[in-house]
Amino acid sequence: MSEPLLAVRSLAGGYGPVDVLFDVDLHIEPGHVVALCGRNGMGKTSTIRAIMGALTHRNGTIRFGGQSLVGKPPHVIARLGIGIVPEGRQLFPSLSIRENLEVLARGTLTGGWTLQRAIDLFPRLGSMLDRPAWQTSGGEQQMIAISRALMTNPKLLILDEATEGLAPLVRHQIWQTLHRLKTEGLALLVIDKNLRALSRIADFCYVLERGRTSWRGTGEQLAAERENVERMLTV
């Protein structure tokens, strides 16, 4: 059996001496969409930081593309093929949209993601490429953040609360975009609170509770047990 694209096993870690993750398991196969759910403060963003090398590692393994990520610095991990759309977007506000998209661009021999392809994904950005990022709406900023991550040409795209605080029409567009990326074969790790939308796109789902994996199941199981999982997220 081939190794998953991303395999996190028995992960434990924290910030300095303070532990926040105790036993996290997470597997992502190539081309699959995996949802990571949990109440605020349960370890979702900390798990992402551990994957990206920004959390003190205590125990467990993190493997991507067949090699260990433990001990590697964030910039090396990113170059291995992990793109991230962080919570809060973290754009460069004084740079133009074009500059935000091109600053981390990394081409491939087969072409991959380019500025034109990003505009095709989000046509709204095409007419405002020279506008500073701070002069854009929250929805436009999220489009920029997703496009910027894609232009690193990742094998895995991680999205941390990518629809949080957006207008309904923009949220709908983001979900449509994730569906499109899935059909194109890009692996996704999605953190979001919308279980209904997640169940429609996710191949698998994990729920974290106090730094531990407390529930796991397929997208179909998430749809069937959505009310039970929602109770886990609101207790």
Rank of each mutant, 00 (worst) to 15 (best):
G66M: 11
P93K: 10
I191N: 04
V8A: 02
L208P: 02
R63W: 05
F64P: 08
Q135G: 14
Q173H: 00
I77L: 04
R58V: 00
Q141I: 06
T47R: 02
A224K: 14
L233R: 07
E3H: 14
E161I: 09
T163Q: 05
T163S: 15
R148S: 08
M52N: 06
L159F: 03
R49K: 10
A54I: 03
H27A: 03
V103N: 10
D160E: 14
S68A: 03
I28H: 12
E161S: 11
I51Y: 01
M151I: 11
I144L: 02
P154R: 11
R9A: 05
G138H: 10
S147K: 00
L11T: 01
L166S: 07
L101G: 14
I51W: 00
A133Y: 06
E220T: 14
V33P: 07
R58M: 00
V70Y: 01
L181H: 12
T61E: 12
C37Y: 06
H27S: 01
H172R: 05
V18D: 08
E225Q: 15
T110H: 08
S137V: 10
G41N: 13
N153Q: 13
L186Y: 08
I51H: 01
I201D: 10
V76A: 07
T61W: 01
T136R: 05
Y15K: 11
L166W: 09
T61H: 06
P17R: 04
L150E: 10
T45Y: 10
P168I: 13
V207Y: 05
V34G: 04
D160C: 13
T114K: 02
L157F: 13
D160I: 13
V207W: 07
V33I: 12
L69C: 09
S147I: 00
P132G: 03
G31P: 11
L169T: 03
Q67W: 07
T213L: 00
Q173D: 04
G88K: 03
E3F: 09
D160K: 13
S2D: 15
T110N: 06
R180E: 03
G13L: 06
N40W: 10
A197I: 02
R216T: 07
